[in-house]
Computed example of a mutant assay.
Amino acid sequence: MPAKQKITPCLWFDGNAEEAMDFYMSIFKDSKIVNTLNWGKEGGSKEGSLLVATFQLAGQEYIALNGGPEFKFTEGISLSIDCSTQEEVDSLTEKLTAGGGEVRPCSWVKDKFGLSWQIVPSILPEMLRDKDQAKADRVMAAMMQMYKIDIQKLKEAYNGQ
């Protein structure tokens, strides 16, 4: 049995946690609802409605809380996704922005629930950490001009093309 995850991000929703979990689980493999807790007679919402759930996306656990309208997501926190191919970048961008999301600069997207995601090709941090600072600077300059990351254009910048 795998060890319990020590730190679990908790995502605050305004009554639509079930919809959000279903949306995210439709995008990522190895995803499931682990457990749920519904409101009882005492509490701040309708008896029997979802209060909190633990769910997994790509094997990583998250908590979804139907906390109400008091707090909204901001870009101050985002979930970063490691992508190995341009096809994966394109697919995740399309899926996460479906139904009202938006593509933001530098391969950030905001989904229809307001949660921010960074869709990062694995090669990008490798190029940005290159010991040749000129290569890293060209890649950074190219990335700063992009919304959805284009791996081929990053490679061209890296190679000085």
Results as ranks from 00 to 15, higher is better:
3 A>E: 12
7 I>Y: 14
10 C>H: 02
10 C>Q: 12
10 C>I: 14
14 D>A: 12
22 D>E: 12
23 F>E: 03
24 Y>D: 06
24 Y>S: 08
26 S>K: 03
28 F>W: 05
33 I>P: 01
38 N>W: 01
41 K>Q: 14
46 K>D: 12
48 G>S: 04
52 V>N: 01
53 A>M: 10
53 A>G: 08
56 Q>I: 04
58 A>D: 14
59 G>C: 13
60 Q>C: 12
63 I>D: 01
69 P>T: 09
70 E>V: 07
70 E>R: 07
71 F>A: 15
75 E>T: 07
77 I>S: 12
79 L>T: 08
81 I>D: 10
83 C>V: 05
88 E>Q: 15
90 D>G: 04
92 L>N: 00
92 L>Y: 12
93 T>D: 01
95 K>M: 02
96 L>P: 14
99 G>Y: 05
104 R>T: 10
105 P>L: 07
109 V>G: 03
110 K>R: 14
113 F>M: 01
114 G>S: 07
118 Q>Y: 09
123 I>Y: 00
123 I>E: 08
124 L>N: 07
124 L>E: 08
125 P>T: 01
126 E>F: 02
126 E>Y: 05
127 M>R: 10
128 L>S: 09
129 R>C: 15
133 Q>W: 02
133 Q>I: 13
133 Q>K: 14
136 A>H: 11
141 A>F: 05
144 M>F: 13
149 I>H: 07
157 A>Q: 04
160 G>T: 10
